[in-house]
Write a protein that binds this DNA or RNA. Structure first.
Length: 545
RNA sequence: GCGCCCAUAGCUCAAUCGGAUAGAGCAACAGCCUUCUAAGCUGUAGGUUAGUGGUUCGAGUCCACUUGGGCGUACCA
């Protein structure tokens, strides 16, 4: 429908050249009596042309060539909106299209041939993934799915650092627990407050004791203790991600940037290009010259680089690996770090518009009416695993996808458990399962699907469904280009609501055969779109509930 | 102090480059199952879009200020 409008307006550009100066935007009006699609072009152009909106609208309409089999009526309304009413039988053509493309209906080839990388989760292996990481994980994976749907070849990557201070403390923590188990707890006896407090540390220590007895008492904490902890924790993280359907293409260890000399050569390049200088034994990057607020240290006086240097080096590898689009997904606690990295890249001539940084707001966990401050080190957290145990993968994925990433979201654990039956995801899944059930029943009745008499679908409930189905491909493109998965959940909820209304009003079994078979085709089309939409979100579409 | 994000119905959230009467779900109230799944449908109620001012044909959306919250503001990541 939208394509048709864009088409006729593009044709009209030959006669009305001013139509070339504006974006051809058509929207679905909130009010049904404002037509199927509307545009405010006349009002936008009125200002530029210094004419009355109504006159501009009249002139536009006079120059449009429309097929009455497609568009029934065009009206000017309100202050200058142009409203389009489509022919009901034209609306049914979407069914043929959906049946033809099936599970690929809604895919767009607009970025075919381009490579994208989505870097997400990227939590250092110091403990299990928490509910907070869950938002990042789900959003990142869904963004990757959406990009695939508009043609990108997408790699999912997890960037981590197993060499920093956090990891040293991790090794220390495991060793101390190990010594405790052997009755050799450190002087004073208390487990230090700034060590990792979680139970998983004890479990790793216990496994080491079982395997090696007391042979490790003189081992360096950074040796087997740290290594074993990293291995176990990573295995755990991977398992958790698998439970919600996430599979990384690659895990990129920051350390490899040191091993293959990328850090050093980057440092040399900054120096050679006169982009860095030394002050107080540290190396500083001239960020003020690049338009940022202040210069920042890239190598500490201890000789150790800050995170900025490896981060820039890491992004350079992304360019070297040929990505056309690089998504970085961070929590809002990182909102101060990425401008430095982007500026660094820009200074070396990399096109930083290829890097898209998405910042999501934090998840506030409410438990028993109180805000829980999450901290991996203090072991004050609810793990993503626990959440999946409680409500299941579908609810978790849907919940994190249904909100705009800019919103701070409150997650009330008790409420989530209690209301899991009322979660909108079940509303969608129910619509899907209901259609499966209809198809089983109608099959038993000897009814088959038929796209031959679709023009019988003239009931209000049927037409509303058809118009909604038309919107799906555009919704996917819009959601993907703007990285907004919540648009898809909103769309699917509206589609499911229209289906449930159709179900209540329009019977299949018992209707005249031609009509019944056309309705079956409509059901299959709706089911296909729900299934495709849910698959982008990573949510299952059950046959039965 | 400064920077980024945010404030919409009792609760959780939508609202397509600024568009027509601000919408859903949950919670509340009143109805609908001898017929394809009632995890559903229909209806009622619920709003000064935090506040004040501005920009214009038109503002939840843009600008300024105020109030309240989140996250930053490291030679941590």
């Amino acid at each position: 429908m939208k394509e048709y409008l864009i088409n006729i307006f593009t044709q009209a550009q030959d006669k009305l050249t001013y139509l070339k100066d504006v974006d051809l935007v058509f929207t679905v009006p909130a009010q049904a009596n404002h037509g199927d699609y509307a545009t405010n072009l006349a009002m936008i152009l009125a200002k530029k042309l210094k004419q009355k909106p109504l006159d501009v609208a009249k002139e536009i309409i006079a120059n449009l060539t429309t097929d009455p089999k497609v568009i029934e009526k065009i009206e000017i309304a309100g202050p200058g909106f142009i409203n389009f009413y489509f022919n009901p039988s034209y609306n049914t053509k979407i069914i043929n299209e959906i049946l033809q493309h099936g599970k690929n209906f809604g895919r767009a080839a607009i970025h075919t041939g381009k490579k994208a990388m989505v870097e997400f989760v990227s939590a250092n292996p110091t403990g299990p993934l928490t509910v907070g990481h869950g938002r990042n994980a789900v959003v990142g994976d869904t963004v990757a799915n959406m990009l695939e749907w508009i043609g990108y070849t997408v790699d999912r990557e997890y960037y981590f650092n197993n060499a920093g201070r956090q990891m040293r403390v991790l090794g220390d923590s495991v060793k101390l627990r190990y010594l405790e188990l052997l009755g050799q707890s450190a002087k004073g006896g208390d487990f230090p407050e700034d060590y990792y407090q979680g139970e998983y540390i004890k479990e790793i220590a216990a496994a080491l004791k079982k395997e090696y007895g007391d042979k490790l008492v003189n081992e360096n904490p950074e040796g087997i203790f740290k290594q074993r902890a990293e291995k176990e924790i990573f295995a755990d993280i991977i398992k958790t991600m698998e439970r919600i359907g996430i599979k990384m293409k690659n895990f990129y260890n920051e350390h490899t940037l040191y091993e293959d000399g990328k850090i050093k050569s980057l440092l040399d390049e900054f120096k050679k290009e006169n982009l860095s200088y030394e002050k107080e034994d540290a190396v500083w990057l001239k960020l003020t010259e690049l338009g940022n607020e202040q210069d920042k240290v890239i190598v500490k006086s201890s000789g150790e680089p800050t995170y900025r240097l490896p981060d820039i080096a890491y992004h350079i590898t992304k360019y070297e690996r040929g990505y056309d689009l690089m998504i970085d997904l961070f929590g809002s606690d990182h909102n101060a770090t990425y401008p430095d990295v982007l500026a660094g890249l820009r200074s070396l001539g990399y096109d930083d518009s290829k890097v898209k940084v998405l910042i999501h707001q934090f998840v506030t966990i409410m438990q028993k009416g109180e805000v829980v401050k999450m901290s991996t080190r203090k072991a004050n957290y609810i793990t993503l695993d626990e959440l999946v145990d409680e409500v299941g993968s579908d609810v978790v994925r849907y919940f994190f996808n249904m909100r705009s990433i800019t919103s701070h979201l409150n997650f009330d654990i008790e409420l989530a458990k209690k209301q899991s039956d009322e979660n909108p995801v079940f509303y969608l899944q129910y619509a899907h399962a209901r259609i499966s059930s209809i198809l089983r029943m109608t099959n038993d009745e000897g009814l088959v699907t038929s796209a031959e008499n679709l023009n019988l679908l003239v009931a209000k409930e049927e037409q509303n469904l058809l118009k909604k189905l038309h919107e799906f491909p555009n919704e996917i493109i819009y959601s993907a280009e703007n990285f907004e998965a919540h648009r898809i959940t909103t769309y699917l909820e509206e589609l499911a609501a229209l289906f449930h209304r159709f179900y209540t009003e329009c019977r299949i079994i018992g209707s005249e055969k031609k009509l019944a078979e056309a309705r079956i085709a409509l059901c299959i089309a709706v089911q296909t779109v729900i299934r495709n939409g849910l698959s982008i979100l990573g949510v299952n579409a059950p046959e039965k509930m």
